[in-house]
Design a protein around this nucleic acid. Structure first.
Length: 997
RNA sequence: GCCGAAGUGGCGGAAUGGCAGACGCAGCGGAUUCAAAAUCCGCCGCCCGUAAAGGGCAUGAGGGUUCGACUCCCUCCUUCGGCACCA
């Protein structure tokens, strides 16, 4: 091997140098240039062999629990989007270990899921096999990136030892009812109302108890947090299977495009709505982005109003008698058959109710419909049942509905009003019935105009009120006058004794009055629905439940739980995964020895064959990571108290609502049942932004090859149709363009050759079909894991969506190579320190640079501003590589600063700097304020706010000093000459501004 | 429609009341090299000015507050995300 080349210019050296260079090219790979591959595999092996990141069972000193949203191990392998959040958390963990905290940083797999099952149906491969293979790929890829996970805590939701406890928690939920009146005190000392309690504590009415033990069991079953319900599913007869919502696109199956119909099927529901208020309230106690909190509040959708009973039919005498009864008996908890119960947020508009509307599925419809209207009503209901949710909620369509022939009485004025059914009223919200006040509700107005129902205004807007856009859109002409609906707040008119009250006062007064007379009560409703918790799939957690059978083998409706000691209920061995053609779940075809048993008391039992949704396993995995191998409990209480809550949780915004809401719900149930110590699982949440494909320039051409300006191009009639030229309605094709073919004109890119033609410039979501997916394996092979990590952090703010750029990766990779050359000798054959590295004491300038860098990088990591932290380190390296000698005393702290971001390179350099231990637990460099003091500060001088010059002042100079210096500057003096200085604005070390006239 | 986020050079972005464009990419020029790669040095928002000096304009648009606004307030536009007949 060649030793160092002779310095150029020495006699006889030229030839030797040339030779050396030529030979070096040939053997490049063993030369000590920055060799990411060698360094990274070396340190990954080191960390693994030494258990560097193993976390003790209990924290020593301050704890930090940093969690990534664990991935679904898809067959595609890791995507460059995954390492974005994972790198961010890894940096936080490595940094905090160096700050002396005990860090818990685990990883696992959300491994149940539809793709593995679909693959099984197609190929016969068991989903477990597919899943294990995919997990192996993901694990290899994550290890390749050098994340400091404690891999000994790895769990997969598909492990029987994991889902044993998922089933156990389900049983806990099943064993719980929600007592809305139970008062308790939270950690903050606030009195709260409403708590989950053991079903054994549910008060049983005497009448129920008298009816016998089965009646008691049924009574309890109706009140559990997990209950059964007939809910519509997507049944695809052609595929012979029930499809998940995401497998149905536009009313047909995603695979094959077969028609899908909605049929009711027995399902499991979780009563998340009972926790709506707490899920809403406790958002105030967590450090989450306001936008995510808003999304959750929106999703829960709380509204306040009143429930009011309208008696059915009724001549006036009956009405008076009914009112008298109600005055005596009060408002019943459940509506009786003689009334329709409605929910309204505007009880102040009761006097304007001119008709009522029931949802087509409302249970009273059959009973109310008169023979004359029977056919029309039945037809309408049948049509509504067939429609998908999408069709029913299409706002563009005209309102439809039919009259039932029945009437109800408005309880405030005794007026008879007709009862209609219409699909704009949803059975699942409120009471499934409304009073229609067309004058003050846009939907009711539209319906009333269409069916010529009376409209009676009962709220007056203030005099200069301008109708909103929507109100104007519904305007109608009556006798030459234009009338609008009015949905706002105002003062009551035509409302009897209430006339003149403001909307708010009226609401309060009438709600109180209705309650006093037994006609209504204040009520709260939520847009949130109970959680449909069962799926008709094989690859999910079985429910730990048995159904009792009667003598003829039919379910009695009574249930038995699988005893805790018999958990887990594992999936049966199946002969095949082909759909069996019935709507029942695939497990209905499980072998009889799995499906059936006989209880010790002789009652025959059949297993529940639905499985749990994918959300189940991810609802509590953050708890299992704390105690992953515990086979006596889902978590040991002392460990739970020591580590919870999660201090930082990073993941994609696509889980902003469902996963986070479901986890919070489970956690609250576990809290109520004394299984966990806190009522919120995730203290701080951050959503990383999506990584988009490389920016693309797209031009459009018509069939003749003529360019069409992007401004002329519109979407086709539906999403799958090609785009059209808006002028000619002819299709156009998209053409990828090179930057050289285009130029920027104003705000747009146009064709260089024809600036009339506007070109689209945009980064798209990465997708296989678009062909813009970046494979992390490839990036690591070409540039190394440190470069990938650093690039993902350098792209921009963590939370922003950012387009990928391969030349950007090259940029950070160049930076890493510069760091290497700053410390290592690149021209030597073996890995050794550069001759420039020296034990000399650093200069004041070097110390200032170092400490400014420490200060900035520390603050940036604390605020997750990794992009600017990297910029600061680049500045440091740019400054220092230009200097020789380079003092170790500034290089060593710099290596520590770099280590959370580029850990492999940092470890290698640390070792090169003659340290024998990993730097993972080296103390983080301390910033010394004394070192960053400048002896001179450059201060901008402004005249009337415009920059006119700069002066140098001592740090902390006062105004007279600065003013003196500025006035001594010839240019400033010239500009100030003959002007009157009215004011001087001075901020020490920052700015001096003369305000002149 | 409602709720939320965002709009800054050719590109990613920096600066949250005080020098707009740090840092990086791309581009251009130079050094090194037989040549290239790699590396190093320099230039690099737009306009006026041959150039320099200097000046003007400029953070989606318009207005406002302020000595001073990318930053705060109001109105509007565009893009992205979520919800969408929830009474």
């Amino acid at each position: 091997m060649i030793r160092r080349a002779s310095p150029a210019g020495q006699p006889g050296a030229a030839h030797g140098l040339r030779l050396a260079t030529a030979r070096r090219i040939g053997v490049c790979s063993d030369m000590p240039r920055y060799d990411a591959k060698r360094i990274e595999s070396k340190w990954q092996a080191f960390w693994e062999a030494h258990g560097t990141f193993a976390t003790p069972d209990f924290p020593v000193g301050e704890k930090l629990y940093v969690l990534d949203m664990f991935p679904y191990p898809s067959g595609e392998g890791l995507h460059v989007g995954h390492p974005e959040g994972y790198t961010a958390t890894d940096i936080v963990c490595r940094y905090n270990r160096m700050r002396g905290k005990t860090v818990l940083h685990p990883m696992g797999w959300d491994a149940f899921g539809l793709p593995a099952e679909q693959h099984a149906i197609k190929t016969g491969t068991h989903p477990r096999e597919t899943t294990d293979r995919n997990i192996a790929t993901f694990r290899r890829q994550l290890k390749m990136l050098g994340f400091s996970y404690d891999w000994s805590r790895e769990v997969a939701t598909t492990d029987p030892e994991y889902f044993r406890w998922t089933q156990w928690i389900f049983l806990k939920i099943y064993d719980t009812w929600f007592d809305p009146d139970c008062a308790w005190t939270d950690a903050a000392g606030k009195t709260r109302c409403g708590k989950g309690r053991p079903i054994s504590e549910l008060p049983i009415p005497d009448a129920v108890r008298a009816a016998g033990p089965d009646a008691v069991r049924r009574y309890q079953d109706e009140r559990r947090l997990a209950y059964q319900y007939e809910a519509p599913v997507n049944w695809c007869p052609a595929l012979g299977t029930v499809l998940a919502n995401e497998e149905v696109i536009g009313g047909v199956s995603e695979r094959g495009g077969h028609p899908v119909v909605r049929i009711p099927l027995r399902q499991w529901m979780l009563r998340i709505t009972a926790y709506a208020e707490r899920l809403l309230d406790d958002l105030d106690s967590v450090a989450w982005p306001e936008s995510i909190k808003a999304l959750q509040r929106n999703w829960v959708g709380k509204s306040e109003g009143a429930e009011v009973d309208f008696p059915i039919g009724g001549a006036s005498g009956d009405f008076a008698a009914w009112k008298a009864t109600r005055l005596q008996a009060g408002f019943p908890a459940e509506p009786l058959d003689d009334v329709l119960r409605i929910y309204t947020t505007r009880p102040d508009t009761l006097f304007g109710a001119t008709y009522m509307v029931l949802a087509p599925e409302h249970p009273c419809v059959d009973r109310l419909t008169t023979p004359q209207y029977r056919t029309a009503v039945d037809d309408y209901r049948r049509q509504a049942a067939m429609k998908s949710d999408l069709d029913r909620t299409d706002l563009a369509k005209e309102k439809t509905g039919v009259f039932t022939g029945a009437f109800a009485v408005n309880p405030v004025n005794g007026e008879q009003i007709p009862i209609w059914i219409a699909d704009y009223v949803l059975v699942s919200y409120g009471t499934g019935a409304i009073m229609a006040v067309p004058a003050h509700d846009l939907r009711d107005w539209e319906f009333a105009v269409r069916f010529e129902l009376p409209i009676r205004p009962v709220v007056a807007a203030h005099d200069d009120y301008q109708p909103t856009k929507e109100e104007r859109a519904l305007a109608r002409e009556v006798n030459g006058r234009t009338e609008f609906p009015f949905a706002g707040l105002g003062a009551a008119i035509n409302s009897g004794e209430y006339t003149g009250l403001t909307t708010a006062d009226f609401k309060e007064a009438i709600t109180r009055r209705l309650a006093a007379e037994g006609l209504g009560r204040g009520a709260v409703n939520y847009r949130l629905r109970d959680w449909l918790f069962s799926r008709q799939h094989f690859w999910g957690e079985p429910f730990p439940l048995w159904h009792e059978l009667d003598a003829s083998g039919n379910p009695t409706g009574l249930l038995r739980t699988v005893p805790e000691a018999d958990l887990p209920v594992t999936l049966p061995e199946m002969r095949h995964f082909k759909p069996h053609g019935r709507p029942e779940p695939p497990l209905a075809e499980a072998p009889p020895e799995w499906l059936y048993t006989t209880a010790p008391d002789g009652v025959p039992l059949v297993r529940e064959t639905n499985t749990m949704p994918q959300w189940a396993g991810s609802c509590w995995y953050y708890l299992r990571f704390i105690d992953p191998r515990n086979d006596a409990a889902f978590i040991a209480p002392d460990k739970e108290r020591a580590w919870m809550p999660v201090d930082l949780y990073i993941g994609g915004a696509e889980h902003a609502v469902l996963h986070l809401l479901y986890s919070r719900f489970w956690h609250k149930v576990l809290f109520d049942r004394g299984c966990v110590s806190g009522d919120e699982p995730f203290r701080r949440l951050v959503n990383q932004g999506m990584i988009l494909g490389e920016a693309e320039l797209t031009g459009y051409q018509d069939e003749s090859g003529q360019w069409v300006s992007a401004r002329q191009v519109v979407d086709g009639p539906d999403e799958n149709q090609p785009k059209l030229n808006a002028g000619t309605r002819r299709p156009v094709v998209a053409v990828r363009l090179d930057t050289r073919q285009t130029t920027k004109l104003g705000n747009e890119f146009v064709l260089e050759a024809n600036p009339e033609i506007v070109v689209e410039s945009r980064a798209f979501k990465m997708s296989k079909s678009r062909g813009n997916v970046v494979n992390p394996d490839q990036v690591v092979a070409n540039y190394g894991a440190d470069a990938l990590r650093l690039y993902e952090m350098f792209m921009g703010p963590l939370e922003a969506a950012k387009p990928w750029s391969m030349s950007g990766v090259e940029g950070v990779s160049r930076f890493l190579a510069r760091v290497w050359r700053m410390i290592a000798d690149e021209r030597s054959d073996d890995v050794r320190l550069s001759d420039a590295v020296s034990a000399v004491p650093p200069s004041a300038d070097q110390l200032r640079l170092l400490h400014k860098t420490i200060q900035a990088v520390t603050a940036d990591i604390e605020s997750l501003s990794f992009n600017t932290a990297i910029s600061r380190m680049m500045e440091f390296v740019n400054a220092l590589t230009a200097q020789e000698p380079r003092p170790r005393a500034v290089l060593e702290p710099f290596v520590l600063l770099l280590s959370p971001l580029a850990p492999h390179l940092a470890e290698e350099l640390w070792q090169l700097l003659e340290h024998t231990q990993s730097l993972a637990y080296e103390p983080w460099p301390e910033f010394d304020p004394a070192c960053v003091v400048e002896h001179e500060v450059e201060v901008p001088v402004q005249i009337n706010g415009k920059l006119r010059g700069k002066i140098k002042t001592p740090p902390g100079a006062d105004e007279p000093t600065a003013r003196g210096l500025a006035q001594a500057d010839p240019r400033i003096a010239e500009l100030l000459a003959g002007k009157q200085v009215v004011k001087i604005v001075f901020v020490s070390d920052r700015l001096l501004n003369f305000v002149v006239r």
